[in-house]
């Protein structure tokens, strides 16, 4: 039968004791495992390297700079994908594109219908409706696409039309506008109506 060779500090060897004694209580003087000490030394080396890389050499940009850079990238992407919301022709073009119109209809039917009704005819269909008719030629806050876009974007706070830009963003707001414009013809009559 094989027998384990006894480790160097086998049964006979008492561990060393520290010299002090308090009320007869003694303390062993045993070495920590080397692997344990190595984690400590490793942590110290890591700390120095980290401090040097971040604080002294600046090899890695600070957290603040990284956040700024990421925000700049997001802004750049937003700008690159945003459209010119003052271009009436663009909106009219969108209003003839079934993909845009269908997407706008989806958003309209989840957010706009309680006031302007599913028919978009608002007060014309039902005098007790909250929102005005969006299919007739009368416009309160401007009837050109770019004016209508501003109305959707910023709302009409005094009347209860919320600012939708923070809720749905430019893409969905443009789609909703395309859906509304699909009920109109480019160059149609616009009658300005008093609020």
């Amino acid at each position: 039968m094989n027998s384990q060779p006894q480790p160097p500090h086998g049964p006979e060897a008492e561990p060393a004791l520290r010299p002090h004694s308090y009320d007869g209580i003694r303390e062993y003087d045993q070495r920590l495992p080397n692997w344990w000490l190595n984690t400590l030394y490793g942590a110290i080396v890591f700390w120095i390297a980290y401090w040097f890389v971040y604080m002294i050499a600046g090899l890695v940009p600070s957290d603040g700079a990284q956040v700024d850079a990421a925000m700049a990238r997001i802004e750049a992407t937003k700008m690159a994908s945003s459209i010119d919301v003052t271009n009436d022709d663009k909106f009219w073009e969108m209003s003839t594109n079934p993909v845009f119109v269908e997407a706008g209809k989806q958003t309209y039917n989840s957010l706009c219908f309680p006031c302007h009704l599913a028919s978009l005819r608002g007060k014309s269909e039902n005098p007790t409706a909250i929102g005005p008719d969006l299919t007739d030629t009368a416009w309160i806050h401007g009837g050109t696409p770019k004016e209508m876009y501003v109305t959707i974007k910023n709302g009409v706070i005094a009347k209860g039309m919320p600012a939708w830009d923070p809720v749905i963003g430019q893409k969905k707001a443009s789609e909703v506008l395309a859906y509304i414009l699909s009920y109109h013809k480019k160059g149609g009559t616009i009658t300005l109506q008093a609020p």
Partner: peptide, 19 residues
């Protein structure tokens, strides 16, 4: 000896077991 860990030698190195 129960006062020491078998798998750590007194110089801190590892004592490998072959159970």
């Amino acid at each position: 000896m129960v006062d020491s860990v078998t798998t750590i030698n007194s110089d801190g190195s590892r004592y490998f077991l072959y159970p």
